[in-house]
Simulated assay, not measured.
Amino acid sequence: MSLFYVDKKAQENGDHEIHTASCTHSPGIKNCDPLGYHIACSTALDAAKAIYPQSNGCYYCSHSSYHSEDK
């Protein structure tokens, strides 16, 4: 189980990325909204989408919920 956060600032494509608390690519806790503890990044992504409908997983720490723009 990991602690997840969602970036308050959207990426250039409008996505708000979810990150684990230990992700080195996170913008920092001050710049994120907490999502709580989740067993899988998919449930953290669902929680993020309740706040920011256009959310995506981080390529580095939440890869199974990451969706490339190329798809």
Rank of each mutant, 00 (worst) to 15 (best):
L3M: 09
L3E: 15
F4T: 01
Y5R: 10
Y5M: 05
Y5P: 00
V6R: 00
V6H: 00
V6Q: 02
V6A: 04
Q11I: 00
E12A: 15
N13M: 06
N13T: 03
G14P: 06
D15G: 01
D15T: 04
I18E: 00
I18N: 00
H19V: 01
T20R: 08
T20V: 11
A21S: 12
A21L: 07
S22A: 10
C23W: 06
T24R: 13
H25A: 12
H25Y: 14
S26C: 01
S26P: 01
P27I: 02
P27W: 01
G28T: 03
K30Q: 13
N31H: 15
N31M: 09
C32N: 04
D33I: 09
P34C: 03
H38S: 08
I39W: 12
C41N: 12
C41R: 13
T43W: 06
T43G: 10
A44P: 15
A44C: 07
L45E: 04
L45Y: 02
L45M: 09
D46L: 12
K49V: 04
K49L: 04
Y52T: 00
Y52G: 01
Q54G: 06
Q54W: 05
Q54V: 05
N56E: 10
N56F: 05
G57E: 06
C58N: 04
Y59D: 11
Y60H: 14
Y60P: 01
Y60R: 08
C61H: 00
S62Y: 06
S62P: 05
S65Y: 06
S65M: 10
S65A: 14
H67D: 10
H67A: 14
E69T: 08
D70F: 10
K71Y: 07
K71G: 10
